[in-house]
Amino acid sequence: MPKVNGASLLRGLIGTAGLLVVLEAAGRLGAWDTERLPLVSTVLLRAGELLTDPEFLVSARSSLTTWALALLVTIAIAVPAGLLLGMVKPAELAVRPLIEFLRPIPSVALIPLVILLYSETTHMRITVAVYAALWPVLINTIYGVRDVDPLAKETLRSFGFGPGSVAYRVVLPGAAPFIATGIRLAASVAIVLVVTSELIAGGIEGIGVYITIAASGNRLDLMIGATILVGLFGILVNALLVAGENRLFRWHRARAGAAT
């Protein structure tokens, strides 16, 4: 879990602000045609305005819902599957080649196929996002389960607890920090894939659709403004999840710290 402190945050902000200032100055000094590619200040202003624009908000809500559902479906599939594969070695060996084959296939390449399979756009988008987001959660869960100390499991067994109790009381909490990291990675991947599927497959609502419409109207200010908002959302989600991990898994950090 990356640790963010005041000093590093401040430097990051200074760097970002510096780049924006340079770009703004270059645009104003005529480095490019600002009629075609708008100034930084214009884009930032548009991004701010979009937050109260009803048309954009309908699209944003749609994307957000798709993203949240995709993440939930991902967790519901990948965590139990990962627990099972992590605990039952023969099952993992049987499925491993399949995982190694499916994992590198870009989710985007499946969009044409998925369009044919689903008539409902939300289902199609969720499927595409889940396909990509599944892997980090699945792989992290498998490794997390494997990382659980055998002695921790034996201790509970020696007190007469059965395999179900051991899985629930030792394996799941022991693997939880790894699972959380997988979910955090999946959250970012899902954002990318939801917007991508909206851009490629179109539809009525969604930020990707909004960007496509803005492009057809030659509104680069709105396109870039909407894109920036997607990026900011990604940063926000990541920061919240990191904060949650740091809070919940203090024990894991303390132990990892003691080991190094």
């Binding site: 921790a152 007190f159 007469g160 909490p173 024990w251």
Partner: peptide, 19 residues
């Protein structure tokens, strides 16, 4: 694993649950 039996292992740091 029999009832009425408990084990204390050498490696307490692995045998106790850090969470």
């Amino acid at each position: 694993s029999p009832e009425n039996l408990a084990v204390v292992f050498q490696d307490y740091s692995r045998s106790l649950y850090p969470w």
